[in-house]
Structures are given as C-alpha cells and as structure tokens.
C-alpha cells in the first residue's frame, strides 16, 4: 500500500493528477473575473442601469481593466500595522478557498479516458468528503481575522471581529444542514452522494436542509445580506479597509471562489450533481449549468435584500437557523432508521 498522505481514492496516475489540478485551477481562476463582470452587469440591470459598457464590446474587457488596475496599484501599509501578517492574511484566504475546490465533483470516473488512465472528473475524492471542505472553511477564517487585526485600524478590527462571530455562528447550521443529506446517502464522499441521487435529487426529501444551507452559505461566504464583516455603510470595508492592490484583489477573489465552492457543494449535495438528461459527456456541463444557477441566485439576492442588523444576524443564526437545522437532522435520522 503506497499512499503519499492519507488515502484519497485516486483513480489516475500521478501525471494525470497534476494535469487535472492545473486544469481545475486555471479554469476557475479565469472564471472569477467573468463572474465579477456578470455580477456588475446584472446589478446594473437590477438597478435600472446599464452596468459597465465602456471597455471593449459590451464592456466585455472590463475584468481585464480591473485586474490590470489592481496589479499596478501600490500596497499601502499603515504605520500601526504588522506588515508580515498583513501580507500573510490574503494568502491564507485564497489558499483555503482554492484548496476547497478540489472536492467538487464535475463527473464520475471515466475509464481509460486520458493516456490510458482512468480519470475521475473531480480533484480528489477523500473518505472524509464534505468534512474536508469544513476543515478548510475553518482555516479560511484566519485570513479575515489576521487581515483585520494586522491592519492596525479600528474598522478593520471591527470587521474581523464580526467575521469571527458570524463564522462560528453559521458554520454549525451549515454543517447540520448537510448532515441530513449525508445520512440519507449513507456516505460523506461527494461523488457517492451524487451517485445516490440517481433516482431523486436530494433537494426534494431534504428541502428544509437545502434552505438552511443556502442561508448559512450566504453567511459563510460573507455575501449580502450577510456581509457584516465588510458592511460598507457602517465600517468602511471591514477587514479589508487598509488593503489595496492585488492583496485586496486576493481577498476579493477568495470571496468569489468561496461562492463557486458553495455553489458546487450545493449542486453536488442537493441538485443531483452531474445527473441530467443527455449523453454522458454532457455531465460536466450539467454541473457547471447548475452552479451557474446558484451564482445568479447569489447575485440576485445581493441586489434584492438589504443588509441585516448585527444583532438580527446573531439571533437569527442561533435562535432560528440552528434549532431548525437540528430538528431537520433529528427528523431525517428517525426517517432513515424507520425506512
């Protein structure tokens, strides 16, 4: 038994694994600016404006201009800051976001697909499955926290404190909402959960879990209406107030990658993953289409709902979402045992 570190059930040879990682990494990083453009365009339409339309045809080159601007900006560091930690924080944020991408399944294992090797259309299929995402989600908090603390400014500090409180409050509800799916499928592995949805998608029997997951997912990704950590009307920009240039860009990119990850997990756990009509080669496209739906939904909610007040956020998380999630787990457990 030769395992490098832990057992991840890889179907393919090392070369193909590296190739696969590069493809996932490159594609997602290219998609992030496009989602940004989509968000700005859609927000414009929601607010009866046109959105960005000056750079290139229909404003399509706007992401390039944004990235160019971010890359060429100066990194300002306040005198009260801790410089090395301020540089480290965005690294933690983006590292944990990208690492979580690895478990999102885009398709089943294809036999003999590439260079005579079996290829699973996912990064890795770990035995702990969804817990892998939670482990990195737990570490992602330190990106926001250290960023806010190391900036040495009041607004940054307030933002990171809010992020801390919000993350521990909603992470429990997020975990419990997925527990119902895990119990129904009898597995933690995302690919096995998708395979278990061959007949009926888990959004039907686990609809309450799905709702809780979406609400907690908004809180976990710091998206409006739960963006208390950077609430720009109250605390300037929260934890990233003092950041500029590509360090700010990294925080920003991490937020969008987290959004993609939440969309991917929701697709795999509730919307049947790669299942859909048509031949097998369409599988990854089904996953991408379903993830796209979720991302549109994220943007739609941002444009529609106002930001919650801080104490509302806390009491909602602890007094409504958590008991509801616990009840959902309990009912599901009873049903799983009875049937």
């Amino acid at each position: 038994m030769t395992h490098v570190i832990a057992d991840v059930g890889l179907a393919e040879s090392t070369g193909v694994q590296i190739l696969k990682s590069i493809v996932i990494f490159a594609v997602v990083l290219q998609v992030v600016p496009l989602i940004l453009l989509l968000e700005r365009k859609l927000l414009g339409r929601f607010q009866a404006r046109l959105g960005p339309n000056r750079v290139g045809p229909f404003g399509l080159l706007q992401p390039l201009a944004d990235v160019g601007k971010l890359l060429s900006k100066e990194q300002a560091t306040p005198t009260t800051a801790v410089p090395w930690m301020m540089a480290l924080a965005p690294v933690i944020s983006i590292l944990t976001a990208i690492a979580t991408l690895a478990i999102i399944p885009f398709g089943d294992v294809r036999n003999d697909a590439l260079f005579g090797s079996d290829v699973g259309l996912y990064g890795i299929d770990v035995s702990i499955g969804i817990l892998y995402a939670f482990a990195f989600g737990a570490l992602a908090f330190y990106g926001l926290m250290l960023g806010g603390w190391a900036s040495g400014s009041k607004y940054s500090f307030l933002g990171s404190m809010r992020a801390a409180a919000q993350l521990i409050s909603y992470e429990i509800a997020l975990g419990f909402s997925l527990l119902g799916v895990v119990m129904t499928a009898g597995s933690l592995s995302l690919t096995e959960i998708v395979q278990a949805q061959d007949g009926i998608w888990f959004i039907v029997p686990q609809f309450v879990g799905f709702l809780i997951f979406m609400v907690a997912g908004f809180a976990e990704t710091n998206r409006p209406p739960f963006d208390m950590a950077e609430a720009d009307a109250e605390i300037v920009a929260g934890y990233n107030t003092e950041y500029g240039g590509m360090r700010f860009g990294s925080f920003f990119m991490a937020e969008y990658i987290n959004m993609i990850v939440i969309a991917g997990i929701a697709t795999a756990m509730f919307l049947g993953g790669w299942h859909g009509p048509g031949p097998a080669f369409l599988d990854p496209f089904w996953v991408v289409a379903k993830m796209f739906l979720f991302i549109i939904f994220f943007i739609w909610i941002r444009a529609t709902l106002p930001r919650l007040r801080y104490d509302q956020l806390m009491s909602f998380g602890w007094k409504i979402l958590l008991p509801l999630a616990t009840l959902n787990v309990l009912v599901t457990a009873v049903l799983v045992v009875l049937t």
Binding site: I128, F134, A135
Partner: peptide, 13 residues
C-alpha cells in the same frame, strides 16, 4: 483522516 478534519474543524476552527 477523520481525526485530522475534526482537529481542524473543532480546535482550529
């Protein structure tokens, strides 16, 4: 693996 994940989620997280 489970212990490692639990360690990160519960203690570090």
């Amino acid at each position: 693996e489970f212990l490692a994940a639990a360690q990160l989620v519960v203690y570090a997280g």
